[in-house]
């Protein structure tokens, strides 16, 4: 796999929910994301954006079609390999921050790196502090995560997602619960990541600020991609 190869290739991805009624939530999705690309996914509520993100980010493997991430066919991996792959290759920021509330900020951010087992405890703390500094929340490191404001927590979640140098950073409406000021802050950070670290980013959002600054906007409706808009 050379650098020129796209990082994500989704081919004929379909998914059907049968509960409560049969419902085609993803309908023959074909999508390619290049390395270093900042792609924004838009669409009305219920159109299948979150479902697609879970499939692309390897959390969900129950679909038809194939998804290849960084040259690896996701469905070919067993659960343990999948967990390992997720740990080292993918960072995910959810709409709700999902920090472990009883742990300190530093502990939360360290968790993926401890699982990876690639660095010494000292290196992990160093990396964690570096990421927290990058996101402007280093001063909160020793606080319990539940003590932080929503905006701060979301930035900690991004710091955590970046811990293992993921090849792709996924976000599912990461600024959905933030005010305009915090949203702009997160957007600045993401753009810095893209320009400075060549970070691949795939993000669901309703925010117009994002769609303006993304490399590409993909619109989805009723489980189908209806438009690729190159900026």
């Amino acid at each position: 796999m050379t650098q020129e190869q796209p990082i994500i290739v989704a081919k004929h991805v379909s998914k059907i929910f049968t509960d409560p009624v049969e419902f085609r939530v993803l309908d023959d999705i074909n999508l390619t994301v290049d390395r270093g690309e900042f792609v924004v996914l838009v669409g009305p509520s219920g159109s299948g954006k979150t479902t697609l993100m879970y499939a692309l980010s390897t959390l969900d493997t129950e679909y038809e079609g194939t998804i290849t991430v960084d040259g690896t066919d996701i469905k070919a991996l067993n659960p343990n390999q999948l967990a390992q792959f997720r740990n080292t290759t993918i960072g995910f920021v959810f709409q709700f921050h999902y920090l472990l509330p009883d742990f300190t900020v530093l502990d939360n951010v360290s968790l993926p790196a401890i699982k990876a087992g690639l660095w010494s405890p000292e290196e992990i703390e160093e990396r964690a502090m570096k990421n927290l500094t990058l996101l402007g929340v280093a001063d909160q490191a020793r606080k319990r995560s539940s003590r932080l404001s929503g905006g701060q927590q979301q930035r900690v979640a991004i710091a955590r997602a970046l811990m293992n140098n993921p090849k792709i950073l996924f976000g599912d409406e990461p600024t959905g619960n933030l005010d305009t000021k915090n949203t702009a802050l997160v957007l600045d950070i993401l753009q810095d990541l893209k320009t400075e670290f060549h970070q691949t980013i795939l993000m669901v959002t309703h925010d117009m600020q994002f769609t303006e600054r993304a490399d590409r906007v993909v619109a989805i409706r009723d489980g189908r991609i209806i438009q690729h808009e190159q900026q």
Binding site: R86, F94, Y98
Partner: peptide
């Protein structure tokens, strides 16, 4: 969240 970040 632990599973999402790669815990088995």
């Amino acid at each position: 969240i632990l599973k999402a970040m790669g815990y088995r």
